[in-house]
């Protein structure tokens, strides 16, 4: 006989309430909006799945989606290896370790819109150090307000500057958690540096790399503030990511219905990608177990 004690529910209640207010209720509101055409506070019409159909057919939105996908792919492909490399290069102990960690972590402490502002000014050809250097010293024709490629690169480099430190910190923590005996055994087994990285460090970084990958994917797929401040989504649509398009729809044009439908699809996409990454990494590098 199993005894049941329903008082346990009381203990879970605070969490249930806070999650309800922070996630479930807003989500239900969004679902509610997504099936209605809202004209004003008291004027609304039920439209069923119309907004979902519209959203999936919207070519501008599809453009933003692929742009965002490309951006996230580039971010992951550049930031993860770079983060691992920097973490490997950092000193392991002593004051040098503390100093380099603080220096590496600095960009993480800067608020998003400030990061945007910094790079907006930094990239300007007239008063910005970076823009001036590229144009006058290297003789390139760099202008992120005009050239779609320059705008894209600016946003990408800004993201790398801002967020690679997160990957570095996670990997650094993962590396320090590897017991010394592994390195000692590797030395006795005459392992070369590459083999040490491949068979000791990388497998033991699996957990932190998974977290880094998920965080960086979600953040880059949701990116809003920084490109909004630097390029405002332009030139043209060159840096209009999903969230920028969404806020245009919801806040700029006050199309709450389509925006809500869009949000739900957006949410689903992120969930699916995270699930795929998660399962992939957990099963990576595993041979047949007993």
């Amino acid at each position: 006989m199993k005894t049941t004690n329903h008082r346990a529910w009381l203990l879970v209640l605070p969490v249930v309430i806070s999650v309800a207010f922070s996630a479930i209720l807003p989500l239900i509101t969004v679902i509610n909006y997504s099936v209605q055409d809202i004209f004003g506070p008291f004027q609304r019409v039920f439209v069923g799945g119309e907004w979902f159909r519209d959203t999936l057919r919207d070519s501008e939105l599809r453009g933003a989606f692929f742009r965002n996908l490309l951006f996230s792919a580039e971010v992951l492909l550049l930031e993860i290896p770079l983060g691992v490399a920097v973490a490997l290069a950092l000193p392991a102990k002593g004051w040098r370790a503390s100093l380099s960690l603080v220096l590496v972590a600095l960009p993480l402490l800067i608020p998003w819109n400030v990061v945007g502002t910094i790079w907006q000014i930094f990239g300007r050809a007239d008063i910005g150090l970076g823009g001036f250097f590229l144009n006058n010293t290297l003789g390139l024709n760099y202008n992120y307000t005009n050239d779609p490629f320059d705008a894209w690169m600016t946003v990408l480099v800004m993201d790398i500057w801002h967020w690679t430190p997160l990957v570095v910190l996670l990997c650094y923590a993962g590396l320090r958690a590897i017991p010394e005996a592994y390195y000692q055994a590797a030395r006795i087994d005459a392992a070369k540096p590459w083999a040490i990285f491949r068979y000791i460090q990388l497998p033991r970084l699996r957990g932190v790399l998974l977290i880094a990958l998920l965080l960086r994917f979600m953040d880059s797929f949701l990116i809003y503030t920084e490109p909004f401040v630097v390029t405002g989504g332009g030139p043209g649509n060159a840096t209009t990511f999903l969230s920028i398009y969404l806020s245009k729809l919801a806040v700029g044009q006050f199309d709450l219905g389509p925006a809500a439908a869009f949000s739900l699809i957006y949410f689903l996409i992120i969930q699916i990608f995270c699930f795929i990454f998660y399962t992939m990494i957990l099963n990576l590098g595993k041979g047949p177990a007993r």
Binding site: Y199, P203, K286, G287
Partner: peptide, 9 residues
């Protein structure tokens, strides 16, 4: 060593 060292993967 004291704790078994194996190459996990």
């Amino acid at each position: 060593f004291q704790f078994p060292v194996i190459y996990d993967t």
